[in-house]
Design a protein around this nucleic acid. Structure first.
Length: 230
DNA sequence: GCGACAG
DNA sequence: ATCTTGTCGC
């Protein structure tokens, strides 16, 4: 699929932060997606410390059956370190490359990271949403910023994630007695819809299918490519 | 200066 | 994320 290039990835830490502040105003934080969702994509990254490579996978699943109908992958050398708050500058390039190899354009994309629950309001999901020009939602496994009350232990329960006086996401329990996930708007999706999509795409596991399947695929493809595991 | 800190 | 063994709980 075609991906828009908003800017170059060849920037330093200072420029990266400046870029985020310039892009945040472009985000659409309310629902602006197809009336009927037919497909949802998930992504994941695998990293090889010894060879300094990033292995990215983008998978498209049928909604709501959650059947994987397409896979795409890309391998790129690392050109930016991991710095909390600047994750998209490290994982963005390989993710974009993987999406460019997809034939189908998914209705919505779920990213393994934060949306607007970010120091400058532009986490990985939001940033990718602008490049892909597709509705995106952020579903992270742990917190980056924000305060919240522990949600009830029942599956489906949630609590608000507050940051600088705003509700920037939801702490959602996708499975009973298991750590919650952090859901936030990426781009063109409201928080209520983002939460709804995460819950409706979960299948008994803490991690919703788009991300979970992408994780499985990226590890399988990496092994097939003969890239060192452990 | 100290602690926090997506993947 | 990676590295890395055993272990606790449903």
């Amino acid at each position: 699929m075609k991906v828009r290039r908003l800017h170059t990835w060849n920037v330093d830490y200072r420029e990266a932060r400046s870029l985020q502040e310039r892009l945040t105003p472009l985000l659409v934080l309310h629902d602006r997606l197809p009336g009927i969702i037919r497909t949802i994509a998930g992504t994941d990254i695998s990293y090889t410390k010894r060879s300094d490579l990033l292995f990215a996978a983008a998978v498209v699943l049928d909604y709501p059956s959650m059947t994987v109908i397409e896979e795409a992958f890309a391998v790129e050398e690392v050109h930016f370190p991991y710095i909390p708050g600047l994750l998209s500058f490290r994982e963005g390039p390989p993710l974009i490359a993987a999406f460019e190899k997809l034939k189908r354009r998914p209705d919505v994309v779920m990213l393994d990271g934060q949306g607007i629950a970010h120091p400058r309001g532009l986490g990985l999901a939001s940033h990718m949403g602008l490049f892909l020009d597709i509705p995106t939602i952020g579903c992270a496994k742990t917190r980056l910023v924000g305060l919240f009350d522990e949600p009830p232990l029942e599956a489906g329960s949630m609590s608000e994630l507050h940051y600088e006086g705003m509700v920037v996401g939801a702490v959602l329990r996708t499975k009973k007695n298991v750590k919650p996930v952090f859901v936030s708007q990426g781009h063109r999706v409201g928080l209520a819809t983002a939460v709804s999509l995460v819950l409706s795409s979960a299948r008994g596991y803490r991690i919703p299918e788009p991300t979970r399947q992408a994780h499985i695929v990226v590890n399988r493809l990496r092994k097939e490519q003969g890239i060192q595991m452990n």
